Simulated scan of single mutants.
Amino acid sequence: MSQHDDQRPEPQKTPLEESGFEPYEVNRPIPVLVLAVTVALIAWGVYTLWADSGPSTETAAEAEAPVAGIDSAPAIADNASALVSAGATVFAANCATCHQANGSGISEAVPPLVGSRYVTGPAETPVQILLHGIKGPIEVAGNQYDGRMPRFGETLTDSEIAAVVSYIRQQWGNSAAFVEPAFVAQQRERFTADRGPWNGGAELEQVTGVPARLARATATEASQ
C-alpha cells in the first residue's frame, strides 16, 4: 500500500456537528382541556359497558308479547285503544282469511261476526270458541253453518285472545264490553286444553247460555 493511500482526508464535519449541539425534546405538557375530555370519554365508556352488562329490566308481561305468525306484535296495554289496536293485528294474522276483514264471513261456509250473538253476547262465548275451536252446526243471522274452526288456545296468549275478542266486540257496529286477559285466564282454567272443539251451537248453549236457535236469540241478531 502506498503512502498516498494512507493519507486519506478526514471527513468534514457539518456546521451542526462543529457547534457541538445535542438534540433534545422540549417538554410540552398536555393541555388541561384535552386531559379533561379524555378522562370524560374513558368514564363514559366504562359506565356504558357496566350498564349493558347489568340484569335485564324486562317484565314478564313484556316478554309475553310475541304473537304466533306475526313478526312483531304491538304491546297490549290496559287502555281500550291499545287493546283494540293489538286485537286488529291478531285478527288480521289469524282470523281475517275466513271471517274477512269486514267481519262478514263467507256465505254458506264461515259465519259472520257482524251482529253475531256469539260475539256480542257473554264474553265467555267467543273466548271459549277461540280457546278450543268449534265444529258442527251453528246458526247465525238466520243461516246454518256446519264447518270447523281451529283452536287457538295453544298459539295465542291470554293477552292476545283478550285483545282480539275486544276488537271483534267493538267493530262493524258491534258494541260489547272489552275483555281483560285475567278473564281469559279464568276461562282457560275451566276446561283442559285437549278437550277438543265445541260441538256446535248446542254444546255452547249448555256452557255459555247463548241460545243455539235463532228463535231464542237476542233481539240484535233476530232483527237481521
Results as ranks from 00 to 15, higher is better:
Arg213Ser: 01
Ala212Asn: 08
Ala202Val: 10
Thr208Ile: 14
Val210Asn: 00
Arg195Val: 03
Asn199Leu: 09
Glu205Val: 03
Ser223Val: 11
Glu221Lys: 03
Asn199Met: 05
Glu221Ser: 04
Ala217Thr: 05
Ala222Met: 08
Gln206Gly: 08
Gln224Val: 07
Trp198Ala: 02
Glu205Tyr: 15
Gly196Asn: 07
Arg195Gln: 10
Glu221Leu: 08
Leu214Thr: 00
Ala215His: 08
Thr218Pro: 01
Gln206Leu: 06
Trp198Pro: 00
Thr220Ser: 08
Val207Ile: 15
Thr208Leu: 15
Thr208Phe: 15
Ser223Met: 09
Thr220Ala: 09
Pro197Thr: 04
Leu204Phe: 14
Gly200Thr: 00
Gly196Gln: 07
Glu203Asp: 11
Gly201Asn: 01
Gln206Ser: 04
Gly200Trp: 11
Gln224Thr: 07
Glu203Ile: 05
Pro211Asp: 09
Trp198Gly: 01
Ala219Ser: 11
Ala215Glu: 13
Ala212Pro: 01
Ala202Asp: 13
Asp194Arg: 09
Ala202Trp: 14
Thr220Val: 11
Glu205Asn: 10
Gly209Ala: 02
Glu205Ser: 10
Arg216Phe: 15
Gly200His: 05
Ala202Ser: 13
Glu221Thr: 05
Arg213Thr: 02
Gln206Thr: 04
Ala212Phe: 12
Pro197Ser: 03
Thr220Gln: 08
Ala217Met: 05
Gln206Arg: 10
Gly196Pro: 04
Trp198Asn: 02
Glu203Arg: 10
Ala219Pro: 01
Thr220Pro: 01
Trp198Ser: 02
Gly209Lys: 05
Ser223Gln: 11
Gly196Cys: 08
Gln224Ala: 05
Thr218Gln: 11
Leu204Val: 08
Pro211Phe: 14
Ala215Trp: 13
Asn199Asp: 12
Trp198His: 07
Val207Pro: 03
Thr218Glu: 12
Arg195Ile: 05
Thr208His: 15
Val207Asp: 01
Gly201His: 04
Gly200Cys: 03
Pro211His: 13
Arg216Lys: 08
Asp194Met: 07
Ala215Phe: 13
Gly209Ile: 04
Trp198Tyr: 13
Thr208Lys: 13
Gln206Glu: 09
Arg216Asn: 10
Trp198Lys: 03
Ser223Lys: 15
Gly201Ile: 01
Thr220Arg: 11
Ala222Gln: 14
Gln224Trp: 15
Glu205Phe: 15
Ala222His: 04
Thr220Trp: 07
Ala202Thr: 11
Ala219Met: 10
Arg216Leu: 07
Leu214Trp: 06
Ala215Pro: 01
Gly201Ala: 11
Ala219Val: 07
Ala215Gly: 02
Ala219His: 08
Gln224Arg: 14
Arg213Gly: 00
Ser223Thr: 09
Trp198Phe: 15
Thr218His: 12
Pro211Tyr: 15
Arg213Cys: 00
Ala222Ile: 04
Ala222Pro: 00
Gly196Tyr: 15
Val207Cys: 06
Glu205Ile: 05
Thr220Asp: 06
Val207Tyr: 12
Thr220Leu: 09
Ala215Met: 05
Asp194Glu: 13
Val210Gly: 00
